[in-house]
Amino acid sequence: MLYLYLTMLICFALSVIFTPFVKKLAFLVGATDKPNQRKVHQKIMPRLGGLAIYVSAMIGYLILRPWNEDSLYILLGSLIIVAVGILDDIYELPAKVKFLGQFVAAFIVVVIAGVQVTFINLPFGGQLHFGMLSIPISILWIVGITNAINLIDGLDGLAAGVSAIALITISGMALIMGDWFVTSMGLIILASTLGFLLYNFHPAKIFMGDTGALFLGYMISVLSLLGFKNVTFISFVVPVLILGVPISDTFFAIIRRIVKKQPLSAPDKSHLHHCLLRLGYSHRETVLIIYGMSAVFGLLAIILSQAAVWVSMIILVVVLLALEIIAEKIGLVDANYRPILKIMRVIRYANGKQN
């Protein structure tokens, strides 16, 4: 473990050293983010910062050399993802091209390497085998989480911080399970992300861009897939809970666009962080609130993995209900979308009349 801690320290230091050079490179190659009506920042910002995270993490990998039979395929997929991210940060690729790159990276890991969820043990006995669906489900997981992290990358330090919290949780649970590869890779990427976060927290000096958001999303999705595949139904839900903030934000974004009859890929300014800003929270307060939400999800995931089945089911129901109420209160779907709150209002009104 001492060797791992030293490698983490090296990754952190390298990320701190590399980021200023990447910032200069971003301006040199035109990888900049210009302000518009959908953006929060007010000046041109360099957005290639994820390259510092990636290079630092890969050097950490070469130092520590954690290994399993899927390592080379995972690293190849990450290289494709980072290449797509770099090109997008410079040239702003069409959504279809970015999706194709993500699909290829996921295909390599799922189909060629065979990293996939094939079955889960059901809570009250028996197994659910996915059969041929295991491949599309696993690819959908990787592509979905990769895009979920990218979607929340809307405020200084937000995606980096949420990813760091997810990596801490995944690495900690992998350590408990005795999975050295997932533990070490998670902590290497965590250290590299924290080094970059020094420059990315509000007020940010550089953005991670798609290079960083796609890389972090891809690696988090793959590591969680490696750590929690072919287990119980509750353990299957654990990585979903760990990534509760980006997944729920993406889910409500899809619902919002369906309700408003917009294309699923249509950008808007109604994500979780936008809603909190509209409620009057400052930029930094909004980021810290979402950090807190991510930490709560991580803690619940750990509790869920250790609790009895019936306790876990109660926790899941409470979490889902709380998410829906929060989404309705802050207008995450639409200001008029409040089905649960309306039901609660009717119940209160009925109780008031009875009293």
Rank of each mutant, 00 (worst) to 15 (best):
L6H: 07
L9Q: 01
L9C: 03
L14Q: 10
S15C: 08
T19G: 05
P20E: 08
V22I: 15
A26K: 10
F27H: 15
D33Y: 01
P35R: 13
R38I: 08
V40E: 05
H41N: 05
I44N: 11
M45C: 07
L51G: 04
Y54N: 06
S56T: 06
S56M: 09
I59R: 01
Y61C: 07
I63K: 01
L64H: 13
P66H: 11
P66Y: 09
E69A: 13
S71H: 10
L75G: 07
L75A: 01
I80F: 08
G85V: 01
I86C: 04
D89N: 09
I90L: 01
Y91V: 11
P94I: 00
P94G: 00
V97Y: 13
K98P: 10
A105D: 03
A106P: 02
F107M: 05
F107A: 10
A113W: 09
I120N: 10
N121C: 05
L122M: 11
L122P: 04
G125C: 03
G126E: 02
L128P: 00
H129Q: 11
F130T: 00
M132K: 13
I135K: 07
I139N: 09
W141A: 11
I152H: 00
I152V: 06
L155T: 04
A159V: 05
G161H: 03
S171K: 07
G172I: 05
I176N: 03
D179Q: 13
W180Y: 15
L187K: 04
L187D: 02
T193A: 04
G195Y: 01
F196T: 12
K205F: 11
K205E: 14
K205W: 08
G209D: 00
D210F: 12
G212T: 13
L214K: 09
L216R: 09
S221I: 00
L225S: 06
L226R: 11
L226E: 14
G227C: 06
V231G: 15
T232N: 12
S235I: 09
S235N: 14
I254Q: 02
K261V: 10
Q262E: 13
P267V: 07
H271R: 00
H274S: 05
L276Q: 04
L279N: 02
L279Q: 12
S282F: 06
S282N: 04
T286N: 07
T286Y: 07
M293G: 14
F297M: 12
I303Q: 04
A308Q: 14
V311H: 04
V317Y: 11
V318A: 12
L320Q: 12
A322N: 03
L323K: 08
E324N: 12
I325W: 11
I326C: 11
K329A: 10
G331T: 02
L332G: 11
V333R: 01
Y337K: 02
Y337L: 07
R338P: 01
P339R: 03
L341W: 09
V346W: 09
I347W: 06
N351V: 14
N351P: 00
K353T: 13
